Amino acid sequence: MTALFSPRGPSLRELCVQALSSVERGYDLLAPKFDHTPFRTPDSILDATAEALSGLGPFDAGLDVCCGTGAGMSVLAPRCERITGVDFSAGMLAQARAAQPAATFVRADARALPFAEGFDLAVSFGALGHFLPAERPALFAGVWRALRPGGLFALAVGEPPPVLSVSHWATVGFDLAMRVRNAVWRPPFVMYYRASPLPAVVADLTAAGFTVSTVPGLVLARKLAHSDHP
């Protein structure tokens, strides 16, 4: 079957099998070809994040939350002495290890991160859609605990497309299709483009104990140097 996206990308059949799997199993299956799909974080977003972080720091240890195949590690590597990636897909971590052999990788659920004040900088790209709104507080609380006082969390948040654009209606259609799929098929595959609007994300980060600022496409959340937030 003709491969989608690029000659090295997944076929339609492979994507269908992935979509009918759990999130973890689906990404395990997709991992070897993930970087040849549009789902990989675009270099433009990585470059914009790197630019926003230039002049901030210094950063000793960096953490990529939901690191996938390790694309976001390219933002951390030039800025941190030590970098760690965490993801719950063993397949994605295997690809990330091959791409970033000097990094440390941990397999864990991002809703229960196993870190305590070990990092100065955390980043996350393209992961929010995999968390239901009720799960975001646990995600952000775990990042808060993982950061040292004064640590920074840079979270890529896509700009919503104009309501009259094709992209807007494509995301509406995708989210609707996923809701129907999850209503009739188990295990669920959680991926929604419209479940994490910027105001809600900022509110949840603030509730988790961060001070928050935004630049286009990016949220910068700082853990206060003397914060005693739980």
Rank of each mutant, 00 (worst) to 15 (best):
G57V: 12
L220M: 07
C67M: 12
L218W: 03
V17R: 12
P137Q: 02
L205M: 10
L15G: 02
R97S: 05
D120V: 08
R40A: 11
R222N: 05
D60T: 14
R136V: 06
V172T: 08
Q95T: 01
D60S: 09
A141I: 03
M92S: 07
A156W: 01
G150E: 07
F210R: 02
Q100V: 05
T104F: 03
F59G: 07
A52Q: 10
P10G: 14
L139F: 11
F174G: 06
K33E: 04
S196T: 10
D228Y: 14
R194C: 00
V212T: 02
S11C: 12
R79A: 03
P161V: 09
H130Y: 15
H36L: 04
F153H: 03
R194W: 01
C16H: 14
A134M: 13
G217N: 06
R145Y: 02
P38V: 00
P137T: 01
H226N: 15
R79P: 10
A61L: 08
G150S: 09
V184E: 07
A102S: 14
R97N: 00
T69W: 02
H36I: 10
H168N: 05
G150L: 10
V212A: 08
D28L: 05
L128G: 04
T84L: 12
A110T: 07
A102K: 08
S124P: 05
T211E: 15
R181C: 06
R111D: 01
E51M: 12
H229A: 15
A134N: 09
F153E: 06
P137A: 04
G118C: 13
G55L: 06
P162L: 06
R97I: 00
A108F: 12
A90Y: 07
